[in-house]
C-alpha cells in the first residue's frame, strides 16, 4: 500500500529468504533461533537454518516440514569466515536471493574481569560479536543485491543491566554498537539493521542446569510476573524482518516483561 501500511492476513514474509543462525535446539525445549525459524517459515519465508550440530538442526527442520514450510540447512561455525561465506552462498544458490539475516548464535559468560581468563574472553567475543560481523560481511552485499532487506541481531538486557556476567555483558553491548554502526553504514543500500534485547526467557540455552527455584526467581523478576518464551523474541524478530518495519533501523528493541525498568533482586 502507498501509505506504508502492512497488508492484512497471513504470509507476512511471503517471497522472502532468511538465513537464521543458531537455528538448532539442543533439546525438545524451543530455542530463540528455532522459534524464529518456525515463525518465519509459517509466514511464507524460505529459511536456511545454520547450527554447528546437525542433530540440533534436524529437530528444527522436522518441525518446519511438519508444518509444511520450506527450509534447508548448513552445518557450520559462525565464527569461521569460510563457513559464513558458504552459508550465504547456499542460501542464494538454493533460493535465488537473500532478504533476511537473523543472528541468534551466542554463548554465556560469567565473572568479573579479575576472574575471566583471557582465552575465555576471546572465545565469547568471537562467538557473540565477531560472528555477527562475519555473517553480515557476506550477507549484506547479497541482501542489497536482492533489493534490500534486514539484519536482526540478538543482544541482551545484560548489555544495559550488568550483573556479574561481565564478558557476556560486554559482548552484548558490542552487538548494540555493531547494530547501530551497520544501520548507518548500509541504510543507503536499503539494508536495515536492528537488534533485540531479550530478558530472562526460558529457552533451550538458558534451561540447561536451571533449578526450579532459579526459574521462579527469573519469572518474578518481571513486574508482569510472567516468564518469557522464545516465541516472544520470535514475534519481535518477525516484526523487524517484515516490511511492516521498513522505516525502522538501528533500534534496540527490549523484550523483557519490564525487567530492565527496575532492578529487583534476582
Amino acid at each position: 500500500m502507498g501509505d506504508g501500511m502492512s497488508s492484512n492476513g497471513i504470509g507476512r514474509l511471503t517471497g522472502k529468504v532468511a538465513l537464521v543462525t543458531g537455528a538448532g535446539s539442543r533439546s525438545e525445549i524451543i530455542g530463540n533461533g528455532q522459534a524464529a525459524a518456525l515463525l518465519f517459515a509459517q509466514q511464507g519465508c524460505k529459511v536456511v537454518l545454520v547450527d554447528f550440530e546437525e542433530e540440533n538442526l534436524s529437530r528444527t527442520l522436522r518441525k518446519i516440514s511438519d508444518q509444511g514450510g520450506e527450509a534447508s540447512f548448513y552445518v557450520g561455525d559462525v565464527s569461521n569466515a569460510l563457513d559464513c561465506q558458504k552459508m550465504v552462498e547456499l542460501a542464494v544458490n538454493t533460493y535465488g536471493h537473500l532478504n533476511i539475516l537473523h543472528n541468534n548464535v551466542g554463548v554465556g559468560g560469567s565473572g568479573t574481569v579479575l576472574e575471566v581468563e583471557p582465552e575465555q574472553w576471546d572465545h565469547i567475543m568471537a562467538v557473540n560479536v565477531k560472528s555477527m560481523m562475519l555473517t553480515s560481511k557476506y550477507a549484506i552485499p547479497e541482501i542489497a543485491l536482492s533489493g534490500g532487506g534486514t539484519v536482526i541481531n540478538i543482544s541482551s538486557i545484560s548489555a544495559i543491566r550488568p550483573r556479574g556476567l561481565t564478558p557476556y555483558t560486554v559482548s552484548k553491548g558490542a552487538v548494540i554498537a555493531l547494530t547501530k554502526a551497520m544501520a548507518v553504514d548500509h541504510a543507503a543500500e536499503k539494508v536495515r539493521v536492528n537488534c533485540i534485547l531479550p530478558g530472562p526467557i526460558f529457552s533451550s540455552m538458558t534451561s540447561v542446569n536451571m533449578s526450579d527455584e532459579v526459574r521462579e526467581l527469573r519469572r518474578r523478576s518481571s513486574p508482569m510476573g510472567i516468564e518469557g518464551s522464545p516465541m516472544d523474541i520470535a514475534n519481535a524478530a518477525l516484526y523487524l524482518a517484515s516490511d511492516e518495519s521498513r522505516w525502522v533501523t538501528g533500534i534496540s528493541l527490549v523484550v523483557d516483561g519490564g525487567v530492565s525498568l527496575m532492578s529487583p533482586q534476582r
Binding site: 501500511m5 518464551s229 511492516e244 522505516w247 538501528g250 533500534i251 523484550v255
Partner: peptide
C-alpha cells in the same frame, strides 16, 4: 509505517514487551 509499529505493540504478539520504546525513524 508508524501504524505498523503501534499494531505490533498493541497486539498479543508483544505480550512480553512492556516499558519499551520503539523508534520508527529511518535510523
Amino acid at each position: 509505517e508508524v501504524a505498523n509499529a503501534v499494531l505490533f505493540l498493541a497486539s498479543d504478539e508483544a505480550s512480553y514487551i512492556t516499558g519499551a520504546e520503539l523508534p520508527v525513524d529511518g535510523g
